[in-house]
Amino acid sequence: MSVTSTVGGYLARRAAQKERVRILYRRALKDTLNWAVHRHLFYEDACNLRERFEANKHVEDLDTIDRMIADGEAQYDKWRHPDPYIVPWAPGGSKFTRNPTPPSGIDIVYDYGREDNA
């Protein structure tokens, strides 16, 4: 294996790991908001979550990082909220597919054309 491909492989693996961490943090943060009953409780929980991520900021070993991410994802799965907040129009939200807008070009005929002759 040439040097460039190893470097490339290293960078690709690093990038994938960074993306996994970002998405894990995003999901965990949303879940924190779901669990928090009030906004002021959320701020504290979010701070704690951020600290847990920051604590392992400088870990360099790729396999250790992979193991930590897997561990974090397992914890996230375990504590996931059973009834998370979903934006109303999104799939699973309270307004999803409710009373959708009529397609454009479709009009309501009030008197089946007879109003023109009246």
């Binding site: 597919t97 409710r98 309501i108």
Partner: peptide, 11 residues
């Protein structure tokens, strides 16, 4: 009614 229907629909 048309505008009301649009106004009240979810999208």
């Amino acid at each position: 009614l048309g505008s009301v229907a649009r106004f009240m629909s979810s999208g």
